[in-house]
């Protein structure tokens, strides 16, 4: 991934971090890396909207596809150095909810609503035939205070009932 971002245009609202949008079609075929494509990078609110408004809404897609929003410089794979010791909260969604949840999640990430310092790596939306899922990835899987805070913020920004079930998966176990 490109490490340097262009300076923001005058009048634009800078984000705390630079991010990239990615997607991976047919994630189960060949290697994940080969199917992974970067859409583009941005570091201001205005550039985010300009990308986002041109992206197809997840609920309009059929077939298997993963969307990612990750900090620039981190590839959205378990193998990346920033993800290797990390993990992710996974929330399964019944069909029809993905677009709204995904939008609320990425707005919370870009707006720094998680308040966990540098811990957030990114987020992923997986569209599948029966159900969709979203996940929030962080750097340090064994940092309990951080993972709990991410879980609670996720429930708040998505307006989920407190009883909602979510799984935390360690990337090192997925790699094994």
């Amino acid at each position: 991934a490109k490490k340097e971002s262009l300076p923001p245009d005058p009048g634009e609202h800078r984000l705390q971090f630079s991010y990239a949008f990615w997607y991976c079609r047919q994630p189960r075929l060949r290697s994940y890396d080969q199917n992974l494509k970067m859409i583009g990078t941005f570091n201001t609110v205005e550039k985010f909207w300009s990308f986002y408004s041109h992206l197809v809404r997840p609920s309009e897609l059929s077939g298997q596809i993963d969307f990612h929003l990750f900090k620039e410089g981190i590839r959205p794979m378990w193998e990346d150095e920033a993800n290797r010791n990390g993990g992710r909260w996974v929330l399964r969604l019944r069909k029809g909810l993905a677009s709204r949840c995904w939008e609320n999640l990425i707005l919370a990430i870009l707006g720094e609503q998680f308040m966990v310092g540098e811990e957030i790596c990114g987020a992923m939306l997986s569209v599948r035939s029966q159900e969709d899922s979203i996940s929030v990835w962080n750097k340090t899987a064994n940092d309990n205070a951080t993972t709990i805070r991410i879980r609670d913020t996720l429930k708040r920004v998505l307006n989920l009932p407190p009883s909602t079930h979510m799984d935390y998966k360690m990337n090192s176990e997925s790699l094994r």
């Binding site: 609202h13 984000l15 705390q16 609110v45 205005e46 300009s50 408004s53 609320n104 870009l110 720094e112």
Partner: peptide, 21 residues
């Protein structure tokens, strides 16, 4: 340093700014 924090409502407001079309 200071963290750049944006509420959802503010981000939504900027959606319709001329730059973000």
């Amino acid at each position: 340093g200071t963290r750049i924090i944006y509420e959802r409502a503010f981000l939504m407001q900027l959606r319709n700014s001329p730059v973000a079309k």
